[in-house]
Structure formats: structure tokens, C-alpha cells
Design a protein around this nucleic acid. Structure first.
Lengths: 246, 246
DNA sequence: CGTACAATTGAAGGACATCAAAAGCGGTGG
DNA sequence: CCACCGCTTTTGATGTCCTTCAATTGTACG
């Protein structure tokens, strides 16, 4: 798989491993960019703060992701990265990456694609939030996270660890934690999923897909596999596995 | 300016100019990727369709933007690109770009940053939609578009052509056209802006910034210049100007 | 055992959607 | 020149999804 090459090349660079506690900030909105990170363990939330204190989670980052690639080395970070669980990251400095790209053009192509992939996720998130009801948003998010973690669409009976609070889910989806709780209750009462203490039990996977608004049979539109390419999360997951034990 | 280099290098590639009518589709969600485009004239909307026919505008694209860079050459487009106004684009094939990157590593760095920039815009859009009221969303969008077009934050008295219908604005912001109309009426009655026949008149620019939720004086948070880097839109605009008349 | 955080539930209110109709406007053809 | 058409905007009435505020109940941890 082509993406494996990113890992190989990046691992060849000089680096420094860091362990972070749950709640720690990897970087903060407004800081100067200057380094970037390969996540090897744990979950991290990317979030933007507003002047009035409101917080929007932009993306959940799982092991294997490359984080913090700057727009311009002189620019400040547009969002914060905070650990949801204890995490381990490998740090690189910005000049390292730039010179690595200049030396190795194929790496650059891969990094561009990585960036485009992240943009794709942001767009999907946007569609989810703007066009769907709370029930659909939550079902969609849960399905996406499962797929990213497992590397495949979940089937009935699976139990999957998702280390998020209901407040996290709300902050990602533009909902209050209260409403997430109510909506999860409905999904539970309908025998679709149970989300107890950060363990997600899939009771009826096809009902979950339906609740997420993923009717596979629609007219000439991209199938489920397009909206949730299993490859994306899977790559990220496997990069992490392929990493040296550090 | 570093970004000018992208233009120089891309213009050196073999290309083909295309003119598109208003309403024409540059590419469509679900099609195979295989070419990419430099916009030199007109406005284009990137949008995603759902199975039930709902449509979400992901971004408005103005002259100077590089469009359609694929995740993987084998992948299908995740969204459609439709002309809002008559437009002119320069087309390149995917292998051209890839080989150009391999030959010219500095171009690759610039393209990565371009991709990161697009992601930044998507994140900003997400924050706008999730955290703000209809009034704030609309004010924010208008302010952003003005800044992109003019290359600077607009001042009172400016009249700026924004070739969008109120329905477009609604589809971008997760609102109905009806509600956009109502909200614009309030902004008009308050003497902040007037949006008549796609001409935006700025009556009170600081009130507009306030309505957009951009209070510059907030505690340790990034200033306005961070949330709306004038450079971004400006670059794009200038690339287009610098293009050969084609 | 007390404290802090997460989840749950209820009641009340608001922001926005939906449905429907009318009016303004430009373009086209008779 | 006027009639007609389609598109956009506007406005009203009604409804609903979600928020807000508040209180209660777990559950983990020192």
C-alpha cells in the first residue's frame, strides 16, 4: 500500500518520542507552528475555541495520523490538539520535514494526499452537521469511528472502545451533551446500539447504517464504500502498528 | 510572495483552457478523479449531495484556486464543482502534476500548504456552522467573502459584487433560503449591510465584524488577523491576475 | 466517605424549518 | 409595448427540534 511509504520515510527522520497524559495539550490554538507529530497511541481531539469560550471539536485523531503540518512555518496554529486519552507521539521539527520533502519528492505527493484526505474528512463532517438531524449525526459519527478503528464496517455483536464522553460527541456535532444523552437513549431503546462507559455495543448494524442516513440503494449516488472508505482509517491504524515499539 | 511560485511552475505545464457557462459542472461527485483545474475567472461552488437530494455547499471557489487535487488517482470525487457564474479554468491531467512534483520538490511543499489551507477553510466553515447563530453565520460568511475578494477587510461604504443567491448562502450555512432572507432583513434594518441583487453594500463594517462574532479584544485568543488572514484570499486573487490572458 | 465528573431526566422556551402565497425582476416572444 | 414566464426575494402562520436551566443519580478516585 502506497501510504506505507509515508511511514517508512518519516521514520527515517530524526525524532523524539513524547508521552502525554489525558487532558494534556499537544499544541494550542494561536501558538506558532514549528513542529509536527505522528500519533502512535491514544486519541486526540482537534478543537477550535471562540472568544466567548465555546469550543468546537474539528476532528478526532487516532493512532497513525500525521498532525500539525503547518500552512506556513511562520503561521500560528488554527486549532488546539488535546489528548482525550493518554497518548504517545513522535515529534519532528518543521525544517526537517521541509527538507525531507525537497529531497524526496514522492514523499511530498503522499503528504499532499494526506492533506487532501484530512480535508475530505472535514467536508464529510460539515455535511453531517449541516444536513442531518441529531439522531443521524450521532449514528454517522459512531459508525465512522468504528470503521476507522476496526478497519471495516462493524457488524452486530461487536463491542468497540470509543473513549469519548457524550459531551465530546456533542462538541463535535454541534449538539449539547444533554441532547446527545437523550438521543442515545432512543437508539438504545430501539435496540440499535448501547454506549455504556465508553464501550459501544453494536446491536443492529444495518439499523445503525439506516439511522445514519446511509441508504445504499439510492440512485446514481456513491455507495457506502465511498462515504466511508474503509481504507482511510485502516491505513492510519496500520501505520501505527507498523511503527517501531519506541 | 512564495505562493507566486506555484503559479509560475504550474503555468509552465502543458494545459488546456476551458470556458464554462453558469450552472455547468466542472466535475461531479462520484466521477473518477483524473484531472485538476486552476480557476482563472468566475465563481464555483463545491457541493456534496445526499441520497435524499439534499445539497450542502462545502466551499465557494474564487479565481486563483487550484481545484480537484485527488486523494488518489484511482479515487472518485467526493463532491461536485458547479459554476455559479460563467467561468474559465485551465485543465491539467493528474500524471502531469505528479511528475511535476517529483521533478520539482519545492512545488510539492507549496502544494501541501495549499492543501492545508483548504483544510483550514473547511475547519473555519465547520466552526461557523456549529457554534454560531444564523445572524453570526451570515455576517461571518459575507465578511470572509469580501476579504477574499478585496484582499483586505472591507470598510464602510464599500460595495462588493458577491454573485450568490440567498439560497446559495443558505446551502452553505445549513439554513433555508427563507431564513437567510429574514436575517438579511434584520441586518439591513440595523444599518449594517445591504445585499441587493448580488451587490453587497457595507454600511457599518465594525458592526458587521461584531455581528460575525469577531470581538478583537478577547483574552489570549488569536486576533482577527488570524481568523481572516487577508493573505489567503489575496494570494488566490493575485495568481489569477498574474495568469497569461489565455 | 466525600468530591468531581459523567450521565440522566424534566420543564420551558427559542431559533429555525416548513408550508404557502405574493411580489419584484429580467428575459423572451408575440 | 405588453404579456408571459421563470427565478429570486419577501412575508406570514404554524410547528418542531434542540437548547437552556435545574435537579438527581450514578461512578471513579483520593
Amino acid at each position: 500500500m502506497a501510504v506505507q511509504k509515508i511511514l517508512d520515510r518519516i521514520c527515517a527522520l530524526e525524532s523524539r518520542t513524547r508521552d502525554l497524559a489525558s487532558g494534556a495539550e499537544l499544541y494550542r490554538q494561536g501558538e506558532k507552528c514549528g513542529s509536527y507529530f505522528l500519533i502512535t497511541k491514544g486519541w486526540i481531539a482537534l478543537s477550535a475555541l471562540l472568544h466567548d469560550g465555546q469550543c468546537q471539536i474539528l476532528d478526532f485523531v487516532t493512532p497513525g495520523a500525521l498532525l500539525g503540518f503547518p500552512l506556513l512555518s511562520s503561521m500560528v496554529r488554527s486549532h488546539s490538539a488535546r489528548c482525550i486519552t493518554p497518548a504517545r507521539v513522535v515529534c519532528y521539527s518543521e525544517p526537517q520535514l521541509t527538507s525531507a520533502i525537497v529531497r524526496d519528492a514522492e514523499l511530498a505527493v503522499l503528504l499532499c494526499r494526506q492533506a487532501a484526505l484530512d480535508e475530505w474528512r472535514a467536508h464529510d463532517h460539515l455535511v453531517n452537521v449541516c444536513l442531518r438531524s441529531a439522531r443521524e449525526r450521532i449514528a454517522h459519527l459512531l459508525l465512522e469511528l468504528c470503521t476507522r478503528i476496526r478497519g471495516r464496517i462493524p457488524s452486530a455483536g461487536d463491542t468497540i472502545r470509543i473513549p469519548l464522553t457524550q459531551a465530546h460527541i456533542g462538541q463535535a456535532l454541534g449538539l449539547t451533551g444533554v441532547h446527545v444523552s437523550r438521543t442515545l437513549r432512543v437508539l438504545r431503546e430501539q435496540g440499535i446500539v448501547r454506549f455504556i462507559k465508553r464501550d459501544l455495543q453494536i446491536l443492529d448494524s444495518s439499523a445503525l447504517a439506516r439511522a445514519a442516513g446511509m441508504v445504499g440503494t439510492a440512485s446514481g449516488l456513491p455507495p457506502l464504500s465511498h462515504r466511508l472508505p474503509p481504507s482511510i482509517g485502516a491505513w492510519r491504524f496500520r501505520w501505527a502498528e507498523a511503527l517501531p515499539a519506541a
